[in-house]
Design a protein around this nucleic acid. Structure first.
Length: 805
RNA sequence: GCGGACGUGGUGAAAUGGCAGACACGUAAGUUUCAGACGCUUAUACUGUAAAAGGUGUGCAGGUUCAAGUCCUGUCGUCCGCACCA
């Protein structure tokens, strides 16, 4: 068979005759299989795309064979920085390059032979989509989940622009290598922190890789503790957050972050210069430097004192940049005896170190950071740390100096970008009405814009865009010039797919309540704390607004592994280790390539590219073709079902049960191995002089069906060559018959003291006693036993018998 | 430092606690062919032997078990994520 020539034929016939399409009238039986949509940055599909999309499609096809009504959409995440940067470099407009890339990728994805539902295709850069992305912004704004505030962001002085976090690599600009600094700018945020607890709790409900769940837990970073109020001499007060209130009696000083607003207020005259200098220095140092654990702990004394509320002791107030203003309260109580950082700091600056916890193991060493028993803590002496960390806060609560408190490391999501190629933020600034939401959607992104970076949003210089009228009062007003992070677009696309052509609303609530959640989501692990977290946040926020009625978007998640370059490094143009799928597709066709990707790697692990096995897969498919055609050819037949037929059937059903499970768990490599075994069994049966046509043809047919998820064109062609009706995708996955696995004779391993000694042929239905008798009669066994006394006999049915002597 | 995963032939990799290396690639020999390609057959962990028998083998060291790649403890190494989060 010319595997390449038949591809176009079947792609066309499938399309024309609607070989498969999702049935909207059978939603109860729906199976929403989704792959993370792609970013059309390059012109063509790379190996990673093939690995993700073709094998997820194999899973989808498997589910169809299992009788599910599979919905598998496809689209493009088409806003974003790469297209804009490409435009800056070449002058080609991002929209032109993006749409051109999409056209090529669409063609390739169609040729792949996947079951994508093209009727619900999405392109996030088109107004009919981003209109609703803007609508999402409006809903979040109206519900207090979108707000604007001044915040430090990544700034590259050389490119004169703000950078996304992803663009900052080791503290440097990805594009020019210039050091990135923090700059205070007024930015838009989404209040994801409001959902921190639920985002954490609901992870337990999800069938996701443990690692991904762990990463999200870590990212959300819940810590339970208490806030303690310290009063200053001037009467003002501030709070610190601590998870170790049990060590409060050991607090010998407190530290404020340099950005803490109280710093200037409380610094005494003689310390002013020193503190100002320190603040300036820490502001200048890069984030990387400041957060480095290796960095020396620096700080200066403000000259002021605060009162420890638990014992009235006067402690020094310091400023130190190892305290982060963005976490907790931006202030920390220092307990040098029981915290490593405070210990180092106290040693360096000659501050008091006071032990209040004793090591249950008796060690005198400091710092001691574990739980222990309290000392020097008045009425709490003798109490264990776990109890005291709660009891001490409770006491403070009574005197109004503290409360139990839970903190999260998760920060609100900064969504504004000073960039052109994104969805405009639907906000208008009116001289009279102030900040006004603009619900005259879409707020269209203008085409003619000078997007050369100069430190300002490109849209700011676009007169026709920036000048508008106030939606409230109608007077002239100015538009927000920032666009939204592309992660906003991808935070809800899975909700749009099932209702992609709805021009009245982003989606119909009743309909997506039936279509969602996604049953199987497949995509890279790199999105663990970004896309996957944002999408969960959107789902919960929309649920609370009443637009949908489920809690989680993706019930089950699979990460495909990464295909690396042949040298074991990540494929990249700069390393020159990229491998193009095209040459393989041209030489062998997409089916061989898909099947090789299935067989050559453990799906969830990936690994370095090697094409050693491609030829082998090509050979195997040729073998399959020969065997299947041979089964439907001419030979001497019989109606008898003898040993050979039983054996062929046994292998068939063994294959069915394994392949079924393997497809379900994305273990494509072992599924192929089992089908190779079946092919070998067919070859063996072929050599029989007289054959049972019915048995033989049936096995061949079932093999074609089982193979079809991996090699759809090839199996379709075979299916018709052997005179079968209808399309393969409309067949049923073979039914497993356990009784076919039974054989009359089995080979039993005889062990003596767990050492293998002999193998004997026995009937499979013997009782344990009969087995034992049979085994003992065997010459080799007798020889090995040599008359010894048998103490114990262990029988593993159909496998082995073990004599302990 | 914290969290997650992994460690098996020349290579990709298999193994519900039950014969480690399935299935392939590669390699070697044979066969088919005018020849090559393709196909087919056989062999292929290490050691040992004329051949057997035997012995040793899943990073390392222990443990549980009749039986451990698999379970437990410790240890070394690799990869990934987070990291001054109070």
């Amino acid at each position: 068979m010319d595997k390449i020539a038949i591809e176009q034929k079947w792609n066309q016939q499938w399309k024309e005759q609607k070989a498969y399409s999702f049935d909207k009238n059978d939603v109860k039986n729906k199976d929403y299989v989704l792959e993370m949509f792609s970013y059309p940055s390059g012109a063509k599909l790379h190996i990673g795309h093939w690995y993700n999309y073709s094998l997820s499609d194999s899973y989808a096809r498997y589910r169809v064979l299992k009788g599910k009504n599979v919905y598998q959409p496809m689209g493009f995440d088409s806003f974003g920085l790469p297209a804009e940067n490409y435009a800056i470099k070449t002058g080609i407009h991002p929209q032109d390059s993006t749409l051109k890339n999409i056209a090529v990728m669409e063609k390739q994805l169609q040729d792949m032979g996947a079951l994508f539902d093209w009727d619900s295709e999405i392109k996030t850069c088109m107004p009919d989509y981003y209109k609703w992305t803007q609508w999402m912004f409006c809903q979040l704004y109206k519900n207090g989940l979108a707000y604007r505030k001044k915040a430090p962001v990544n700034w590259c002085d050389s490119c004169q622009t703000v950078l996304a976090n992803e663009q900052v690599i080791d503290g440097k600009c990805e594009r020019c290598g210039h050091e990135v600094v923090k700059k205070d700018l007024t930015q838009w945020f989404f209040k994801i922190t409001q959902y921190a607890e639920e985002l954490l709790q609901d992870l337990d409900k999800l069938d996701w890789p443990e690692k991904t769940k762990a990463m999200q837990r870590n990212w959300i970073g819940k810590s339970v503790g208490g806030e303690v109020e310290f009063t200053l001499e001037n009467g003002k007060s501030f709070r610190v957050f601590t998870t170790r209130a049990d060590t409060l009696y050991g607090c010998t000083y407190v530290i404020l972050a340099p950005e803490h607003p109280l710093v200037d207020e409380i610094t005494t005259e003689e310390n002013k210069q020193k503190v100002a200098l320190y603040k300036e220095q820490s502001a200048k140092s890069s984030e990387i430097e400041r957060l480095s654990t290796a960095k020396e702990k620096t700080g200066v004394f403000t000259g002021s004192y605060a009162i420890n509320p638990i014992n009235g002791e006067k402690v020094e107030v310091w400023v130190g940049d190892y305290v982060l203003y963005s976490y907790g309260t931006g202030a920390v109580m220092a307990v040098p005896a029981h915290d490593e950082r405070d210990f180092v700091f106290a040693k360096k600056h000659g501050l008091e170190i006071k032990r209040v916890i004793v090591d249950p193991n008796g060690s005198q060493e400091l710092p001691f950071c574990e739980y222990g028993t309290l000392v020097n803590s008045q009425e709490f002496d003798g109490m264990d740390s776990a109890t005291a960390r709660v009891e001490i806060v409770k006491k403070l609560e009574k005197i109004g100096k503290g409360e139990l408190k839970t903190n999260y490391r998760l920060r609100d999501w900064l969504v504004s970008r000073q960039r052109y190629w994104g969805a405009p933020i639907p906000i208008v600034y009116c001289p009279d009405c102030g900040t006004v939401l603009d619900e005259r959607l879409p707020v269209e992104l203008p085409y003619d814009v000078n997007f050369t970076p100069d430190g300002e949003s490109p849209l700011k210089k676009c007169e026709q865009f920036i000048h508008t009228t106030c939606p409230k009062c109608g007077k002239p007003a100015i538009r927000e010039a920032d666009t939204m992070d592309t992660f906003v677009c991808s935070s809800w696309y899975f909700l749009r797919y099932p209702d992609a052509n709805n021009d009245k609303e982003p989606f119909n609530t009743e309909w997506i309540d039936k279509m969602l959640p996604v049953d199987k989501y497949v995509g890279g692990a790199e999105h663990a704390c970004m896309h996957l977290l944002y999408a969960r946040f959107f789902t919960k926020a929309l649920r609370d607004m009443g637009y949908l009625h489920f809690d989680e978007p993706f019930l089950s998640l699979v990460h495909q592994g990464t295909i690396l370059g042949p040298d074991g490094n990540k494929m990249s143009k700069s390393l020159g280790n990229t491998v193009s799928p095209d040459e393989y597709i041209e030489k062998y066709g997409s089916d061989v390539f898909r099947t090789y990707l299935a067989f050559g790697f453990k799906y969830i692990e990936g690994g370095p590219w090697s094409d050693d096995g491609v030829v082998g897969i090509n050979k195997w498919l040729d073998r399959v073709e020969r065997q299947v055609l041979s089964a439907f050819g001419d030979y001497q037949t019989t109606d008898q079902v003898g040993k050979a037929e039983q054996e062929l059937n046994r292998v068939l059903h063994n294959t069915i049960s394994h392949v079924d499970e393997d497809y379900a768990t994305f273990s494509f490599n072992t599924a192929v191995a089992r089908m190779m075994e079946l092919t070998n069994a067919l070859a063996k049966y072929e050599s029989c002089a007289v054959k049972n046509k019915q048995v033989y043809c049936n096995v061949a047919k079932q093999l074609v069906i089982m193979l079809s998820p991996l090699a759809p064109h090839f199996t379709e062609e075979l299916w018709h060559q052997i005179g079968q009706e209808g399309f393969v995708v409309r067949q049923k996955f073979p039914q497993f018959d356990e009784s076919a696995l039974k054989v009359q004779q089995i080979e039993l391993l005889v062990q003596i003291n767990s050492r293998p000694k002999a193998r004997i042929e026995v009937a499979s239905d013997l009782s344990n006693e009969q087995l034992q008798q049979t085994a003992l009669q065997d010459g080799k066994v007798q020889e090995a036993l040599n008359g010894a006394t048998i103490k114990k006999v262990i029988v593993v049915p159909n496998k082995l018998i073990n004599f302990i002597i």
